[in-house]
Structure formats: C-alpha cells, structure tokens
Design a protein around this nucleic acid. Structure first.
Lengths: 135, 135
DNA sequence: CTTGACCCTATAGTTGCTAGAGGGTGCATA
DNA sequence: TATGCACCCTCTAGCAACTATAGGGTCAAG
C-alpha cells in the first residue's frame, strides 16, 4: 500500500502521515525500489487508532502513551483508564470555560444592534473602565 | 508606567505585551532616555480591553477588528454585534464538539479498571478493527 | 562599585499540522 | 522514444498566540 492509499483509507492527508512518522507515532515503513513508503494492514490499524484518538481530542503525547499501553495486552488497563480519565477532566474543564464565555457573550449580544458604538453593551463589557476614566 | 507595571496591572506577561506591540494591537509607546517603554492610562485601558476580549475567546484578528470598531464611537454597532455573534456561534460549535467527545469518553471510562488491556473498552473503542482483523 | 531588579532586541521553541519548492518514479499514450 | 500526468520524495517555512532563552543595557540602593 502506498502512502496515498493509506491516506484515503484513513481520511488523513499524506503530509500528516509523514508527520506522524517523524513524530514517532508510526514506525518508518519499508521502501519500494523507487523509495516509496510501503504500508501493510498493521499500519492501517495503527493509523486508524491514532485518528480515532485524535478525534476524541487526545494530544499526540497521549496518543503515544495509549499506543504503548495498547501493545501490552496482558497488563491491567488501569493506566489506560487514567489517561482517558485525565483527558475527560480536561475536556470537561474546557466545556465549562466555553460555556461561561458563551453565557457572557449571549448576555450582551443583540441588545444594541441599532444603537451607536458609544453605547454598545459588547464594547462596554470589554472596556469597563473607559467611561470612568474618561468622564 | 514601565512595561512591568503595566504587566502586573493587567495580569499579562511582559513578553506578551511586547508581542501585542509587534502584532499591531498596541502602538509603540514613547521611550525613556534609557530606551524603556513608557505607558499611560490609555494603554492600560487598551490592554485591558484586549485581555478581556481574549478571555472571551476572541482571536487576535477579531480583537483588532473590535478595537477598530470601538474607536468609531458614533458608528452604529451592528458590525460589533456581527463579530460577537459569529464568535458566539464558533464557541457553540466547539462546545458541541467537546460535549460529543465527553459523552463518548464517559461511556467507556471506568468500565475496565480491573481488567486487562486486551479487553479494555477504551482500547477497543480506538481500534475497532483489531479484533476482526486479528482473530 | 557592585548587586539586583528590571529593561532591551532577536531568535527559537511550543502543538499539530499544512503548504510550498524542487525534484524523482512509474505508467499510459502518441 | 518522448511526453504527460499522477503520484511520490525531502526539506523548509508558515499558521496561532504566545513563551522562553541568550546576551546584553539601565538604574537605584548599599
């Protein structure tokens, strides 16, 4: 399998696959006579794994860790659970942060579409001291 | 006011202030005899504005746009509202994406803390074809 | 007159790719 | 045989938004 086929099969760009190789997530595959990378079904599985983990928001470092853990199939999977749980906590923190932004923005949007910038609630939210400091 | 004081007053790192200057968000301030940047209360207001906007998740491009709009205080503020609304939509999309990740992760976490990696639901979620392809 | 806190510029590193330059390979077709 | 085309190769630079480092200069206090 050439890199382009692997790319199509996993919905990944060719450059991204080479990048993953450089980043140590994929081992350098054997080459053809013309120096083309040649992949088998193991690499297809591994890249699919990586893509799914990335889709779930795991960082490349976390993916590396999960790949290492996944290869030790007889180990207890508490370590896997720990990586995933910590990632879940990160996601929940991000959601909370974004929800707060959303609420703040929603509160001021739409309240001054027809007014002037000088009275705009959005601008006032951003520069709360300007009125006080300038009179 | 020297850059360090401005940094403390706005909870911003010194390097970030210099970066904002290079990025065109803050004008180059006057210098002292010793070539130190010298800021006044206008810059404090402007940097506070930038920080608040950044806290709300606006990109530097959006901040630049908001700053330009905010300076035209007699203009109607429909354009401000448009920037904020589009940003709100982006935030809501991010929240939805993260919520989906959270749900998928939460579904598999905690179900196999005592099992082996070979049976781990988290790993299975990531490599759904391995079982089929390998027996 | 030296210590220490602060400031300066310029450059490289971070994450996770993506895009480009400048070239080689391999197959079909004229 | 030549030529075109899709595909592959390496290397390097670019993106956001900083952060950190190197290697210096300034200034007030002791």
């Amino acid at each position: 399998m050439k890199i382009g086929e692997l790319a199509r099969a996993t919905d990944t760009k060719v450059e991204t696959i080479r990048y993953y190789e450089g980043a140590g997530l994929l081992a350098p595959p054997p080459r053809t006579g013309g120096n083309y990378r040649s992949y088998g079904s193991d690499e297809l599985s591994r890249l699919s794994f990586i893509r799914r983990a990335r889709d779930l928001g795991f960082s490349l470092d976390e993916v590396r860790e999960l790949l290492t853990l996944a290869d030790d199939r007889d180990q207890p999977c508490g370590a896997v659970d720990a990586v995933a749980s910590s990632h879940l906590a990160t996601i929940e923190r991000k959601i909370a942060d974004l929800a707060q932004m959303r609420d703040e923005l929603a509160r001021v949007i739409g309240s001054c579409r027809l007014g002037k910038v000088g009275d705009c609630k959005i601008i006032q939210t951003l520069e709360p001291m300007r009125g006080a400091a300038r009179g």
